[in-house]
């Protein structure tokens, strides 16, 4: 499996504060890479740099072999993003919202693609409902539809199941894994739910104070630190000594 995302020596300083400190990692084709760390560890800043929203102080980001700084637009047309912290225009219906993004991403045959995704996420009946009338769980599913509209090769998911009930969260995780296996999508996944990270991730990166302090498969990390699960390892790493 080759790397679709290469990060080398990535550093971000905010007024002298080192939010991200010389990190390097790859995301391989078809893998789910879990990004774990306490609040303020530098996860969001790294994600923002990978999406071209924040300019790195130094270091290199290459996605599909293209430099993020000079080929941002080309890269963004082949990736997508979803977060439980963002939403969609409230007055637009589900269908209108998805149609706008389908056009922004230049999706051919957008109607068919939207119908497919609404069916997959079991929200076909909501297509004419304005976003303001949706529950937060339904909004999250519409955002996930949006994130899959352009059949992205790399998907960045920031706590995608945070506002979902256990049933829908479980369905969503299974669905994401299925889509990942079928389409060989690479996913960068962040969550504070360690059980979810263990279930979803092929590999995890543990980041703290802007630096990568552990990396490997969930099983490898558990074995290495002698934790029963990833949550226990998280507590060991986050509370050293």
């Amino acid at each position: 499996m080759g790397s679709v995302v290469e990060v080398r020596g990535l550093t971000k300083l905010f007024d002298g504060f080192r939010a991200v400190d010389d990190i390097s990692f790859d995301i391989l084709k078809g893998e789910i890479l879990g990004f774990i760390g306490p609040n303020g560890a530098g996860k969001s800043t790294t994600l923002q740099m990978l999406l071209g929203l924040t300019t790195p102080t130094s270091g290199m980001i290459r996605i599909f072999g293209l430099d993020m700084d000079s080929k941002r637009q080309e890269i963004l047309s082949r990736v997508n993003f979803s977060s439980s912290y963002i939403s969609l225009p409230f007055s637009l219906t589900v269908w209108e919202n998805l149609m706008v993004f389908a056009r922004l991403y230049g999706v051919a045959g957008p109607k068919k693609r939207i119908e497919e995704l609404l069916e997959i996420f079991e929200i076909g009946s909501l297509k004419d409902t304005p976003a303001r009338r949706l529950s937060s769980g339904q909004i999250t599913r519409v955002c996930l539809c949006k994130a899959l509209l352009n059949a992205p090769e790399v998907l960045f998911l920031d706590e995608p199941t945070a506002s979902l009930d256990p049933d829908i969260a479980d369905k969503t995780r299974k669905l994401l894994k299925k889509i990942k296996d079928e389409q060989s999508i690479s996913i960068l996944y962040t969550s504070h739910n360690m059980k979810e990270m263990e279930e979803m991730s092929d590999r995890v990166i543990f980041i703290d104070k802007g630096r990568i302090i552990e990396t490997g498969s969930p099983d490898e990390i558990k074995r290495k630190h002698g934790g029963a699960d990833l949550e226990e390892v998280f507590l060991m790493l986050a509370r050293p000594g």
């Binding site: 929203l53 963004l76 922004l104 991403y105 230049g106 955002c143």
Partner: peptide
């Protein structure tokens, strides 16, 4: 954010 992470 949805807008600025799109190719627009």
């Amino acid at each position: 954010l949805n807008i600025f992470v799109s190719p627009l």
